[in-house]
Write a protein that binds this DNA or RNA. Structure first.
Lengths: 321, 321
DNA sequence: ATGAAAGCGCTAACAC
DNA sequence: GTGTTAGCGCTTTCAT
């Protein structure tokens, strides 16, 4: 019994190599008896694949990314792959570093929620290995991507709320040039327009996607107005965290501000402050990312390289419904 | 210039192999020019190390585990290692599977928040590679571990609250036999005792650490009493999620129930319901896990193999202070 | 101070 | 049907 025979059996190629059932069983028996564990590294060295997938996210503590990571981990595990997660802290140079790290570890594919403004880096990388952008995308990029459709959903949310808030409706966003901010702002503007509300440019505030930035922007707003705003659209869950912290510290939680936001969180159900949200479906996002990257890795045709998922609106204000 | 010389230089062993500065620079120049990336798999195959660490957690969506994972990822990255995260869904057979997976990937060490009742499996594994238990531990285990001290902290919390709630004080826990439940219950009992309150065995409810279990236990409790309990200690953040969901659905969020729990969450600051908590420090937990496992991997002496960290109490009720 | 050679454990091509 | 062989890219030992 030789190594190669054993190898074929272990990899389940016994059929196509016409190996007799007898020897196959013998191999399997010996393997089981000796608790044989094939060396992934030797295998990877040979076949030039690592059976790993790289996932790059800003932070794992953000509930949405945690949920996506969790789903992707499950999908990977069920398919004999291992997920390698790396965090960028929303920092582009750190992003470059972690991506290089993952490539050096020879990940078979890369799923990235990028903080970069341009896709240049990933266009180059994608000549080397499959890349799928998710959650965020760069303007005019041709790279495969999976994101939630933010514009129409935000517009719908905002339009309905704006009906009751013609005079003021503020917007807190992250970095102005990345897609989540741009799209959510575009939706916000579109929503106002549809409600027949003329946008006051002073309503728009930019920061970054750290909770502290949400806190700060909201604090500034309150200082400027001398009171909390009457209606506010917050562009993400992380920013909302900061807003809520400020409100809680300043006893504003039962002021009659109309809050709405992109991203849902289960604890929003338990707040006195009602928050209407655009809720992304993380499981769906994860499944699409996974099947797309796997198809790319296996060089199977991908029918739709750019996938926009429809989020659901989650209404919590009685008067919004 | 030969492969071996290059190898020495790349690995920074030029000194101890008495390689001339001239050749060293030449090697480095060529490497840079060709964007040379050493193959981790070839290296791993040779030195029988993968420069990866396995982390096993019940779920990444649990805020505490997400935070710990995030911290550990950063620590690994800063030290040239890669974190491999796997989820068990609180399921012991899945735990066995993911652990085997990680071992097969030849992780250099394993950090585990185990759902198992016994340490047998890990005792065996730890003969093969370093294992550190974290967050949870098995009774009488001698394995290295890093956990938060739960008994004394819970007792302190509960004792103070029980002063005002002599007549009833309920406890919702997870699986009765795993350490988080046992320790937190022990603290609860101790706290009552210190407050001079006699424990009514009916106050104690067990489930598992899924939010749905918290919901269900709380629903049962309300049904039994015909009203929400006056004081309640919830053994974890995940269970509290379920409790809050029930309260929100049944408009109980401004009832005068005194809630307290193990595990803190930033959104608790924004709830009308006040929750006093025992707050674990994830960063500290992560740092201790990391340094311990690295020392074990490098076979350096570990001064303290079982590390109990002191959590902080986070008071939100005015009358508790 | 540098190079040659063996071998880590596996897979794939090819010979028998 | 099964065994032989070469080589994946690296590190380490030993000879020069």
């Amino acid at each position: 019994m030789s190594k190669s025979t054993a190898s074929q059996v272990i990899n389940g190629h016994s059929k196509q190599f016409r190996i007799s059932d007898a020897t196959r069983d013998r191999v399997l028996a010996v393997a089981a008896e000796h608790h044989y564990q094939p060396s992934i590294h030797a295998r990877s060295l040979n076949v030039a694949r690592s059976y790993t997938l790289g996932l790059v996210v800003p932070e794992m503590t953000n509930y949405g990314f945690a949920a996506c990571s969790n789903e992707l981990e499950t999908l990977c595990r069920e398919n004999g792959m291992q997920l390698l997660i790396a965090c960028t802290d929303e920092n582009t140079s750190q992003e470059t570093m972690v991506v290089n790290n993952l490539i050096q570890r020879q990940v078979d594919g890369l799923i990235v929620a990028s903080s970069m403004l341009h896709d240049a880096e990933y266009v180059k990388i994608s000549q080397q290995l499959p890349v799928v952008l998710f959650d965020r995308h760069m303007p005019d990029t041709l790279l495969p991507l999976v994101v939630c459709e933010a514009i129409e959903a935000s517009a719908e949310l905002v339009a309905r709320v704006a009906k009751n808030h013609q005079d003021e409706f503020y917007f807190l966003g992250g970095q102005p040039r990345i897609s989540p901010t741009r799209d959510r702002l575009a939706g916000f503007q579109l929503g106002l327009e549809r409600a027949g509300v003329r946008l006051n440019p002073e309503w728009i505030q930019y920061g970054n996607y750290h909770p502290s930035s949400g806190y700060e922007m909201f604090a500034n707003l309150c200082a400027r107005l001398g009171r909390p705003p009457k209606a506010l659209y917050v562009a993400s869950c992380g920013l909302m965290e900061g807003v809520l912290r400020y409100m809680s510290q300043h006893k504003l939680l039962d002021s009659d501000i109309h809050l709405c936001s992109f991203d849902d969180h289960y604890l929003y159900d338990s707040l006195t402050v009602k928050i209407d949200t655009v809720a992304q479906d993380c499981r769906e996002l994860a499944i699409h990312c996974f099947t797309m990257i796997i198809d790319l890795i296996n060089e199977q045709p991908v029918e739709q390289k750019q996938c926009y998922l429809s989020p659901k609106l989650h209404w919590r204000h009685a008067d919004s419904i």
